[in-house]
Amino acid sequence: MYDKNKIVAGLVIFIAIVTFPFWYNLGNASSAPEPKLSEKAKVAKECVMPKESIKSEHMQVLDLWRDTVVRDANRIYKSGSGKTFNMSLSTGEESCMGCHESKAEFCDKCHNYASVNPYCWDCHIAPKEKPKENK
């Protein structure tokens, strides 16, 4: 085999770079955060879908909603249990953020952990964060 040493050295460097994220974060693992529900959301008890479905499918729901609202002009959503919602991320009392009042506590907690940065907030205006109460 020609250039055996070069190839082996190259392979070692390659593997080191590829596995960088794993050994860099070694020992730093933190548990997945839970989004914190606002008082309003706790009182409301139910959302547009069961909690588990929301957890796994909220991106698709939002994607579908935006098409429904913008393109079909249907803005009212009646859930399985008969409750109605305003199909909007950030406008009005019955929108997502109307109930989940804090982007930092509700959205960002998981998004930051999962290192995703959806561009919702480039356009949609997030509700003002209330100053944190000292407990």
């Binding site: 547009v48 879908m49 429904t68 079909d72 002009a73 249907n74 803005r75 009212i76 959503y77 009646k78 859930s79 399985g80 249990s81 008969g82 199909m87």
Partner: peptide, 10 residues
């Protein structure tokens, strides 16, 4: 048992 969610206009 569970009716499907519906979307509609205001």
């Amino acid at each position: 048992e569970e009716p499907k969610p519906e979307v509609s206009k205001n």
